[in-house]
Every structure is written in structure tokens, then in C-alpha cells.
Design a protein around this nucleic acid. Sequence first.
DNA 1: CGATTTTTTGAATCATATCAACGTACGTGG
DNA 2: CCACGTACGTTGATATGATTCAAAAAATCG
Lengths: 192, 192
Amino acid sequence: MSQRLLEHFRSRIKISDEEFSLLLDHMEHKQVKKKEKLLEIGEVCNYTIYVNEGLLYSYSVDDDGNEHVVHFALEDYWISDLYSFLNRTPATVDIIALEDSDVYMFRYDKMNEMFEIFPFINTFYRQLYEKAYIYAQQLLDRALGISAIERYVQILKERPHLIQRVPLHLIASYLGITPETLSRIRRKLVKR
Amino acid sequence: MSQRLLEHFRSRIKISDEEFSLLLDHMEHKQVKKKEKLLEIGEVCNYTIYVNEGLLYSYSVDDDGNEHVVHFALEDYWISDLYSFLNRTPATVDIIALEDSDVYMFRYDKMNEMFEIFPFINTFYRQLYEKAYIYAQQLLDRALGISAIERYVQILKERPHLIQRVPLHLIASYLGITPETLSRIRRKLVKR
DNA sequence: CGATTTTTTGAATCATATCAACGTACGTGG
DNA sequence: CCACGTACGTTGATATGATTCAAAAAATCG
């Protein structure tokens, strides 16, 4: 069911049922199995992915081979390697399903066509990226300004579902700390 | 002279001289003196500011009273408190001129009007925020994944002008480290 | 020039990483 | 459906990088 996706668009722009139906024709619908890889480092990213059901995440690998989780996308989130997608350069992240998932995808080839057929998609994406940018800035501000324990508490508050559905070592990686440190933080918090 | 701003638009969208002229009529042009404040924490942010000449920066103040530099905007950059601007909520940053500057500003009241008169502005902003989002993500990835010294080296490489024009304690604040640590990092680097 | 701001230096302390070991849970093939 | 292997989480000891506080040196401003 694409009800969630329709609501998602309607929260930002005016779109009729017919327009939405037409738009859906330009998207791809896919079921992905847990652990399935939707993008591999080095490939050019051809999709922006909307998560209708399930949970995907992306991670980069640094020069020392350390993985670093960049983004978790659960229901109603988008995920992609935007830089690779827009600039047609090799992706710097893997995107992998953490759970069996149901996704809708925009293919790069169709983007420009879409912006012509549906001018309102510009408005939609402008608003989407405004929000994404603001959120990234907030995370950055926190990453630099507050301690690991406070960052964990923030995430507990803001995205509680994440903690329930994601293994702790991935949360640690997302927070930029080691699993050991996260374990110790959690012990401290329980004691309180 | 608004030549730089015209180029700035033309790098993203098609815009005729007349359209640009009309667009300019919807913007405000201002000279600001060094140390002048363009936005104060608590106010609602009414502008997105384009830096034509000079250098502005924004910083937040955390619960412990520590200032944290969020953004440096030199020539051809934009600066604002986007969350405050879009949601009409109190700003969380001050915006201050670090040098005498020359800026063009979009006022909030006129934004919706502008999106109607100039539909291509949606496209422009979409692309602007795509880029801003990507950059913020990169910074975040670095903030969490690499050490202070590597972050400083990165900024040296990517925005060398910044180091030349901005006091080091503000660079330190931007990197999320203390001025003392930055001083020690620089000593190490010189020794190499 | 004097006053203020900026940068540097040193010593003690704190937060987090690292390395190593162990316990637990989990799913997968037999 | 059980047992084994792998993935996940915790704990301890030690090392490292960054902060804090105090002070002095250097640069900049009016």
C-alpha cells in the first residue's frame, strides 16, 4: 500500500489522486530482504529510496577500514547517497536492509523528466532538503558540542524506535563512539 | 555590484537579465559594519542572507554558556537560521559580521510571493539545499569519525581563506575543540 | 602608547579508545 | 529441535587525546 507515501507528499505539497498515481508510475516498488544491499560503495547511486515499511541504513568505510553508520531510515524516511546520485560519482556508502523492507524508489534517469512533468516536485524536494539540512546541522552541532552520553540521551528521546530495532553496536557507530563506550554509558544511565 | 549574485543564480538555473533585475527588486541590499549583529538569539529570523563581499558567521550558545560557531559565510555563501526562518520560531544563533560586509537578503514575507512569481526559485533552492545538506553530512561524518587534527587539516585544504581571515579561537569553536587544543595541533603541524 | 583580544604554554584531570577476555543470544544446518 | 558457530554485548586494565585552569606572551585596536 502506498497510502503512507501519498500522505508523505500531501504533507508538503498539493497533489491530486491522479497526479499521485502518475507519479507512482515513475517510481519503482520493491521488497527487500534483511541484509540485502541496495547500494555498494564504488557504484554510482541510481536511486533515492523511500522506506514504506522496514528499516535501512547506510555506512561509510574510512581509510583504516572502520565502518561508520551515516543514516538510519525507518518508515517514512528517505535514504540515498545524494552526492553520488546527483554528481554521478562513486558512492561512498553501502545501503543495507536491517529488516525485511518495502520501499519505493526514484531512478536517476527519470528525475529530470519528473521535474518537467511535475513541477511541484521541485517544491517537494526543496522542502525535503531544507528539513534534511536543518537536521544534519543539529546533529553536527551536537556532535561537536556535547558528550557521548548526552548524544545518546538525545537519540533515546528523539528516535526511541531506533534503539529498539537497531543493534547497539550500530547505534554506537552512528554516535561516533565504540560499542564498549556505549555499553558503559548505558550502565551509567540505568544506575541513575 | 550584483554581478556575483547573478553568476551565483546562473550556476544553478536559467535566468534572464530582466528576471534577475525583477528578482533583485524583491531583495534587500545592505552594507554591514564589522561586529554588527544581523540576527540575535531569541528573535525570529526574517532573512536568508547572501554574502556578496565580506564575512559573516553564526554561533549558538549552549546551556553552559559556551559559544559554538555553526557556520562561516564568506563571499558567495548564504547564511541564516533556517529553522527559525521557516518555522517562525526563536532563532538559536546569533549572526555577526566578522568583517565589513556587503549582503543581499531575502525577506520571509516575500518568499511565498517569490515562489509564485519565479517558479524557478524552487529549483534554485532545491539545488542549494541539496548541496548544503551534502556538505553538512560530510562535516558530520568527519566530526564523528576523525580526530581534531585531521579535521583541522581538512579545513586547511578545503577553505584555506577561512584560516587567513578568521581568528583561531573561532576556528577552534567551529571544529568543536578548545583554542588550546588548536594551538597545540598547529604547533605539531609546523614541526612536521 | 595602553588596553584588550588572541594565542601559546604547562600541569592536572577527564572522557573515550584500545586491547583482551568473557558471557549471552541467536539462527542455521544437521 | 538441538548444538554449534557467529554475532552481539559487557567488563576490566591501560593508553591516548582533549579539556580545564592558570598564566604569560604576542598581536591588534583605538
